[in-house]
Design a protein around this nucleic acid. Structure first.
Length: 346
DNA sequence: TTCAATGATTAAGG
DNA sequence: CCTTAATCATTGAA
């Protein structure tokens, strides 16, 4: 085996610049002393390969064809592929395996949970249910917002799917294009099927990173939509005057213990046509705000105290003076018989 | 445009 | 669960 290097060395001067090794075999084998025509063949082929760029196109085509038809071609091709394979592997190392990207998985999970990816209609309703659950169990009173939310979500989903499809299509197109190209070139270059495969997987990786961007931005859009939806819930309407009257009446007539029981809340909710949660909110806000600045509410307190007094009087007088505070007779409100005193304490 | 009032949400605590 | 307290975001009046 050490014969080769020595020979190469001894003939070093004879070879062409840049490719000392190749013509050498020719020289050597052209002596014909080896008897075997094989070396001659290989040398021929290599020589032709080396000079192929010097030839005119037509000539090159002819040569190419000749080379392709040469009986040694498959063997040489395999050898070159093997060498190339080894080189590539040593250069690139073993970074082949791709661990499932945790971020991508996170995005996928979220899209699935939001019903953006996944089955067409089922996902949507699941998302709506999730949104309903997230909305605090208020339930049946915000169906309009739901449909709005769902419409926007399905819009996002549609965009997402069309984009995804586009990417997939582009990926496939590009892949087949590259594959064809490589297959075509594999007639003149050492390109093994394995390498083509690898190239395809590289392409797929690239495209999937693009897809990840799509998923990312879709997630963002969903998040924004969600926060908008939550904000939509915050889009409050002030309660109407009657409702506030009723709530205030209760509040000020139970000032010593303004904590309505569950039943009381339900009744108030019904009377005000708001939800129990809203009643709770109202009382929570009222208590804290009253406590924070009693002075500011003094007037209001007096007013409602007077009103309930009047109501009570009229009820006791007339026995069945239609209950509901529909049109309080004292709407104009007289300030209050009592103190109009010093507010602005704090 | 400004700003107090107000309904809703959130965090902390029981 | 509920409450308090702080805060957010909108409303509606000035």
């Amino acid at each position: 085996m050490d014969e080769q290097p020595r020979l190469m060395h001894s003939h070093a001067g004879v070879g062409m610049a840049g490719h000392p090794g190749l013509p050498q075999h020719m020289q050597e084998s052209s002596g014909g002393t080896d008897g075997d025509g094989r070396k001659q063949d290989i040398g021929d082929i290599l020589q032709q390969i080396m000079t192929i760029t010097d030839q005119s196109l037509d000539e090159a085509q002819a040569r190419k064809h000749a080379l392709n038809c040469h009986r040694m071609k498959p063997a040489l091709f395999n050898v070159l592929c093997e060498i190339k394979e080894k080189t590539v592997l040593s250069i690139r190392g073993a970074q082949e395996e791709e661990p499932p990207d945790p971020q991508l998985m996170r995005l996928d999970n979220m899209l699935l949970a939001e019903g953006v990816s996944g089955p067409e209609k089922g996902g949507g309703s699941a998302a709506a249910a999730a949104a309903a659950a997230a909305s605090g169990g208020v339930g049946a009173d915000n169906s309009a917002e739901h449909s709005d939310y769902r419409a926007k979500l399905s819009q996002i989903r549609q965009i997402y799917h069309t984009e995804l499809e586009k990417y997939e299509q582009a990926c496939n197109e590009f892949t087949t294009h590259v594959m064809n190209l490589l297959r075509e070139q594999s007639r003149t270059r050492p390109i093994s099927p394995k390498e083509i495969e690898r190239m395809v997987s590289i392409i797929h990786r690239k495209f999937s990173s693009i897809q990840m961007q799509l998923k990312q931005s879709t997630c963002e859009a969903v998040m924004i939509l969600r926060s908008r939806f939550l904000d939509a819930r915050r889009k409050r309407r002030n309660f109407n005057k009657q409702a506030t009257e009723i709530l205030n009446e209760y509040f000020y007539s139970h000032l010593s213990n303004p904590y309505p029981s569950e039943e009381a809340k339900e009744e108030l909710a019904k009377k005000c046509s708001i939800t129990v949660a809203q009643v709770s909110n109202w009382f929570g806000n009222k208590r804290i705000r009253y406590k924070k600045n009693i002075g500011k509410f003094q007037e209001e307190a007096n007013m409602y105290a007077a009103k309930t007094a009047v109501n009570a009087a009229s009820v006791s007088a007339h026995g069945s003076q239609a209950n509901s505070p529909s049109t309080p007779n004292s709407a104009g409100g007289y300030p209050s018989p009592c103190y109009q005193s010093d507010r602005r304490i704090q």
